[in-house]
Design a protein around this nucleic acid. Structure first.
Lengths: 205, 205
DNA sequence: CGGGACACTTTAGTATTGCTAAAGTTAATT
DNA sequence: AATTAACTTTAGCAATACTAAAGTGTCCCG
């Protein structure tokens, strides 16, 4: 029984979200690898696998074992979770659905903002999810209000008021926007940051 | 080469976080299964595997394939990611490190708050990460200010101003705290929510 | 006490597949 | 034309994911 056949069987059994397929997994891996500009050989060596096998995986001809996937994911600076798809959902105001957000391309060269519409008129809080490619450096800014950051994924160096804060996924940072601040993606991964702030000024675009 | 032997090899090759081991994976799965009170037979049937195999997995004698793990994880209402351990990190003020937060036990019966200390005096933003077990229902409250929620993990039903909003991981919700609101973990997983708000009142405890 | 019923473990065995080594493509440089 | 680099393909084997079925221990019921 192939990976994909088995998938069909399982889907019929009523699994909550759509299971990963060999092809979708491979595509995601390749996309990711391209995004960070690595070669198969590099990935293969770092993950302790053969080049040919990486090729097979990416083309959906083979599926890596759990550890191998884990190692490959690490090499790509991404979590295994990233390859296991989420199902779609219905919409409603006030809510911003992860699955419905647009403006995000995984191998974007520049940062991508996903502004979360304010939940209601006269709101004082603003929020935005920003995707930043490895190497990305923002301008140094200062303004009124407060900034709260939650790093969803990646590794970022924030320079705030002359000090450096290295954040990893799940870390948060909170500071007065009046301090000059700048963000820098020092990881090898695209970073995703959730920003919540009191500043009305929503950046360009 | 066994799963664990391979692990040793890989760790030596400089992988960023410690890779999962067959035994730790099994332990996690069993813990989870016990936590939601399912039997091996049930899990096996729902995941389309044999009872004996589940036993083997949980005892670290065998490792499931990716799809199988995925299916088992779904059956247990948890994400695959939950079984892949994270590494520790250094600290600094203004920052709240995911790895250093305390007050969190994975099979807690009640919700657990991780209040993120305000980054600086006179801050207007407050934040908190809340862990809520499946079935958890909060009290209905209303107060001054604004609430912003980002659902890190799980599936929650928020009742705000008489309407229901079903959120999944990655979704956000933004509303005026003056509307009566209540949270309900309708998933089978422990849910983790990031809250950012202007309300000073940080809940009990 | 015998005998289910239940939750889990163990064993033995097979079909699958994860993975490698090596040769083959294709295309860009020089 | 020769070299290099990035990737694909093939052939093949050892490892293992998985099953069916029998085995253990424990609780419960008459």
């Amino acid at each position: 029984m192939s990976f994909d056949e088995r998938e069909a069987r399982v889907a019929g059994a009523g699994s909550p979200t759509q299971p990963p397929s060999a092809t979708s997994l491979g595509r995601a891996l390749r996309q990711r690898r391209k995004a960070i500009g690595k070669t198969m050989k590099e990935v293969a060596q770092e993950a302790g696998l053969s080049e040919g096998f990486i090729s097979q995986i990416e083309r959906g001809l083979s599926t890596p074992s759990l550890i191998s996937l884990y190692n490959v994911a690490n090499t790509l600076g991404i979590s295994v979770e990233a390859f296991l798809p989420q199902g779609p959902q219905p919409a409603h105001s006030m809510v911003s659905r992860a699955s419905e957000r647009r403006g995000c391309s995984i191998d974007a060269e520049e940062r991508v903002y996903q502004i979360l519409q304010r939940g209601f008129p006269d709101a004082r809080l603003n929020s935005c999810i920003t995707h930043m490619p490895p190497g990305y450096v923002s301008e140094l800014t200062r303004h009124e209000g407060e900034d709260f950051l939650y790093l969803i994924e990646g590794e970022m160096l924030y320079e705030v008021g002359g000090r450096d804060y290295l954040l990893k996924a799940g870390d948060t940072l909170h500071f007065p926007s009046s301090l000059p601040h700048r963000a820098r993606n020092v990881g090898t991964v695209e970073a995703r940051e959730l920003w919540v702030g009191t500043t009305r000024i929503i950046p360009e675009r």
